[in-house]
Each structure stands twice: as C-alpha cells, then as structure tokens.
Design a protein around this nucleic acid. Structure first.
Length: 104
DNA sequence: TATTTGACCAAGA
DNA sequence: ATCTTGGCCAAAT
C-alpha cells in the first residue's frame, strides 16, 4: 500500500498522451524527474491500471513496442486501432508518433 | 531486512 | 547492423 505514488504519477502522465500518439518509458520517467524507466514498466506489468489508463501507448525509446500484460499482440491491435502501424514489433514513423511531455 | 526481478536504456565490442 | 555488459530505480518475494 505505502508507496505506489510513483506509479500513480505514471498514470497521470499517461493520460496526457493523446490518441494516435505514443510515448516512451524514458519520457515518462524523465517527466517525473527520475530515471526509473524500469520501475515504470514494472508498475504497468502489475497492471493496477488495466483499461483505466492507456498503457498500450507506451513503447520503448527505440520505437520497439516492448511488452504488454495482456499480450503484445493485443497491444499492437489497440495501437493499430488508433492509427498507429506496427511492423515487426516496431512502431512505424516512431519519431512522428512520439509525444513528449511538457510541464504546465 | 536483503535479494531478486523487470512491459528499460545506453554504451562498448 | 547485432550482441554483450553494466547501470538504473521501484516493487515484489
């Protein structure tokens, strides 16, 4: 119970990502002011957010889709539904689809 | 409390 | 370009 504030911040940031765009674990961590890229993915894996937060819009910094608790195929399918193509486990036009956070 | 794990990243060979 | 190595942080065991 204690803790998890970190994960909560992740979800909050994730909600800022518009549909049709993707972000990276690294961007989220950087936005939070930390380097816990792994902890971010770890929190998602436990998946306390399920369909509440669009976890499927998070990919690796290299544009690789990465993983997904519900199965990578599912993740790709959701992305495709938002207009994002994935080829061989990699996001097409990754740099263009990438969304970077900015502080308000 | 200590150790291991992981939906990661960057640099080196 | 690929493969290996080390580091990084929070959560789980």
């Amino acid at each position: 119970m204690t803790g998890k504030f970190f994960a909560k911040r992740c979800y909050k940031a994730l909600l800022e990502v518009p549909a049709g765009k993707v972000t990276t674990y690294r961007e989220i961590a950087h936005f939070l002011g930390t380097r816990a890229y792994r902890a971010v993915g770890n929190a998602m894996n436990k998946n306390p957010c399920a369909p509440v937060v669009p976890c499927h819009r998070v990919v690796k910094s290299d544009g690789l889709v990465g993983g997904y608790a519900g199965g990578v195929a599912q993740k790709i399918k959701l992305l495709k539904d938002e207009g994002i193509q994935v080829r061989n486990g990699r996001v097409v036009d990754f740099q263009e689809k990438l969304y970077t956070f900015k502080r308000k």
